[in-house]
Nucleic acid binder design. Structure first.
Length: 315
DNA sequence: AGTAGCACCTGATTGC
DNA sequence: TGCAATCAGGTGCTAC
């Protein structure tokens, strides 16, 4: 469930259930799900078994669990974390039951984890992924370069090595807005490509890029360097407000592929103004929305409201 | 350095 | 009805 609001819905749902639980059993049902582990499923299983989840964290679309191995000090920053990326179709499903008592795994279940909480109740956590672009991996951490919280839900100021290269996400209180606006206004790429570039500002995906551009009345192919600073600031602001709004509704969902840890879908798709609405009238001016592929991604915009160049009157 | 293009998968839907 | 083509919300590598 790929974009920031959907991943945050999953993160907070997981956190509410698995904090302080210990991993008893690990079943890798499809090896490619742990393809980033040099030692494959065996190494993945060995590194996880016996560890406890002390935090469930997220930056942009990347999630991770801070782990504590038995015998490690409670306040020591974790040397390793369990990283998860949902890719295009990843889901977590949590059952408040032991692995033996949980429903049989779905055919898209790639990994099944068995956990025991401090109060001895058991949990089964399934990682489902139809398209298999998602993954789980255990990897080392690096410190945050600015010493601030690494992301939502973190306890320690460390993040997975594989997440170090992306920018803070649009809803991160430690996002350096000034630097983000400078990065957004750089280069010859169309602004939509820049919004999708996770190293600039992370968390924005194809849906919210189209929604933010529609709200800010900016053409998706407008070269990034032609945006004025106020224009970029307005764009970042609407991206933040659209994603915040989606978050309060449990994220956007079109079908059973995108659900929270209980298998329920969000309601934000009702509120979309652009994404998936090619040919339908623009909610502002009634002009049928244009749909085209840009950089291989379906892109929706209003050719009337979103001019490639600012109308003469506003120059 | 910055950017475009493609590869990585499975399954649902569309079109002939 | 059957089968091939197309499409899907992401990321990272490669080559220019």
């Amino acid at each position: 469930m790929p974009e920031l609001p959907e991943v945050e819905t999953v993160r907070s749902g997981l956190a509410s259930l698995v904090l302080d639980a210990t991993l008893n059993s690990v079943e890798v049902r499809r090896d490619s799900c742990v393809r980033l582990m040099p030692g494959g499923a065996d190494q993945f299983t060995a590194m996880l078994t016996g560890s406890s989840i002390v935090a469930v964290a997220r930056r942009g679309k990347f999630m991770w669990c801070e782990l504590r191995m038995p015998g490690e000090a409670a306040d020591a920053p974790p040397a390793e974390v369990l990283s998860a990326h949902l890719g295009m179709s990843g889901q977590f499903r949590v059952y408040e039951a032991s692995v033996a008592a949980a429903p049989p795994p779905h055919s898209h279940c790639r990994v099944r984890l068995g956990l025991r909480r401090a109060d001895s109740t058991e949990l089964t956590v399934d990682f489902l992924d139809q398209r298999t672009f998602g993954y789980l991996t255990v990897e080392p951490t690096v410190g945050t370069s600015d010493g601030h919280a690494a992301g939502a839900g973190t306890i320690h100021d460390v993040l997975p090595t594989s997440v170090a290269h992306i920018g803070r996400d649009a809803l991160d209180p430690w996002l350096d807005t000034d630097a983000a606006l400078r990065a957004m206004r750089r280069g010859s790429r169309g602004i939509k490509q820049v919004l999708l570039d996770q190293t600039v500002v992370s968390g924005i995906g194809n849906i919210y890029a189209d929604e933010a551009l529609w709200a800010a009345r900016i053409h998706p192919e407008r070269p990034a360097r032609t945006l004025s600073r106020p224009m970029a600031a307005g764009l970042l602001k609407v991206a933040q407000s659209v994603m915040s709004a989606a978050l309060t509704q449990g994220g956007t969902s079109f079908d059973s592929l995108y659900v929270n840890v209980n298998g329920e879908s969000g309601y934000f798709s009702r509120a979309l103004n652009a994404y998936g609405r090619g040919g339908e009238p623009c909610d502002r001016c009634g002009t049928p929305l244009t749909r085209h592929s840009i950089g291989g991604r379906a892109t929706h915009w209003c050719a009337q409201c979103q001019r490639k160049w600012a109308p003469r009157s506003t120059r």
